[in-house]
Design a protein around this nucleic acid. Structure first.
Length: 359
DNA sequence: TAGGCCATCTGGTCCT
DNA sequence: AGGACCAGATGGCCTA
């Protein structure tokens, strides 16, 4: 069920994307003006990066650890009329104390490394459950979160409307706010034939339609500036997800059509300007359409449980179209895929989603 | 070389 | 006191 997918993925995504509450902004970052304890934190020169100058300036007074005068390094004499600082006095940095501080800092560093590794692991798992996954071309962290957010939104729209969406809206929703390379990758994953968008133009030159499409497709009323833009270089960045520039993706015009109500209060999609989905489909994507892709001219959402609609065997998906999986159903157990894959056949939720898209 | 992305270190803050 | 979480700083790697 979709609700099960929500319950599995949503908490992580909410945490990762910072959805659940924006209360962190109200997190009082009031700096305690009494920072004498900083002097106790000896910086570890061994494994530390060359590091923050602020920290090095903080430790200036700790070098002579065996010095008896403890209070001078607070700079009290320079405070002038200010009262002497209260609170615990700064303690001497004996060699033993420095050693303990060093060990404590190393332990903290190790914990932080582990924590970040866990976070990255969670992101990897998230990459595997969003509609597009490439082992060789990983989505960046921010793009993964954006795509996941869009994906959840799209699924929610399906639940709310109770009917299948048109595929263009679905793709547009998925690609909302994504960079052009990521959009290319997503479109490639969905095997959305760019021919539909780039060449199937109506005589009036302003509307598109998708012939033979099983989906209801809404015409586009506005031409996409990217297609005629000098910056639009067909095939220049297809499948190049990393090291891309977000700049060029933000000046495009959203292409109207049937789409979720992005202005609805429960859609928080204004982090980035919308992208032009049409323009994001590069021609290389079109040119690189393999015979397999041509055979799967219809969108990859057609990978469903029905006979004859399985994904290409070359993908070698370990799971059958029924969504049955050996072992646990938790996303942690999803094995890696060898290349770009759809995920709609890996869980009952996908099966249900497929039902919407299947004729 | 600039810009994007990432890993890591670090200190501050909050919580138990 | 110690751990978790966070954000800033820094440097490395890669690509256009």
């Amino acid at each position: 069920m979709l609700t099960r997918l929500f319950s599995e993925v949503l908490p992580d995504v909410q945490k990762l994307a910072g959805w659940a509450d924006d209360s962190e902004s109200e997190d009082s970052k009031t700096k305690d003006d009494d920072q004498d304890h900083l002097g106790d934190e000896d910086l570890d020169d061994g494994d530390a990066a060359e590091g923050s100058s602020r920290a090095q300036s903080e430790m200036a007074g700790d070098d002579d650890d065996d010095d008896d005068a403890e209070d001078e390094d607070c700079g009290d004499e320079t405070e002038g009329d200010k009262p002497k600082k209260r609170g615990p006095k700064k303690r001497k940095m004996t060699p033993a104390r420095m050693e303990r501080s060093k060990v404590r800092r190393q332990k903290a560093n190790a914990r932080e490394r582990t924590r970040m590794h866990d976070l990255n692991s969670a992101l990897d798992n998230l990459r595997k459950v969003v509609p597009c996954y490439s082992k060789t071309q990983k989505l960046s962290k921010i793009e993964t979160l954006r795509l996941a957010k869009n994906y959840i939104w799209a699924l929610g729209e399906i639940l709310r409307n109770g009917k299948r969406p048109d595929v263009v809206s679905y793709v547009q929703t998925l690609c909302k706010g994504l960079s052009q390379p990521t959009t290319n990758l997503v479109a490639g994953c969905l095997q959305l034939n760019t021919r539909n968008f780039l060449t199937e133009q109506c005589p009036d030159g302003s509307r598109f339609h998708v012939p033979n499409s099983p989906f209801s497709v809404h015409p586009y009323s506005y031409p996409c500036p990217r297609l005629s833009s000098p910056q639009y270089q067909p095939g220049s960045s297809a499948h190049n997800v990393r090291n891309h520039s977000y700049g060029s993706g933000y000046d495009a015009v959203y292409q109207g059509g049937a789409s979720p109500d992005y202005n609805s209060p429960d859609y928080e999609g204004h982090h980035s300007p919308p992208v032009c989905v049409n323009g994001n489909f590069s021609v290389r994507q079109q040119e690189s359409v393999s015979p397999d892709t041509d055979r799967n001219y219809h969108y990859a959402m057609h990978y469903s449980g029905l006979p004859g609609s399985r994904p290409p065997a070359a993908h070698g998906l370990p799971f059958g179209p029924s969504g049955a999986r050996s072992g646990g159903a938790h996303s942690e157990n999803i094995p890696p895929f060898h290349d770009v894959h759809l995920h709609h056949d890996r869980a009952p939720a996908y099966e249900e989603l497929n039902a919407f898209f299947h004729n």
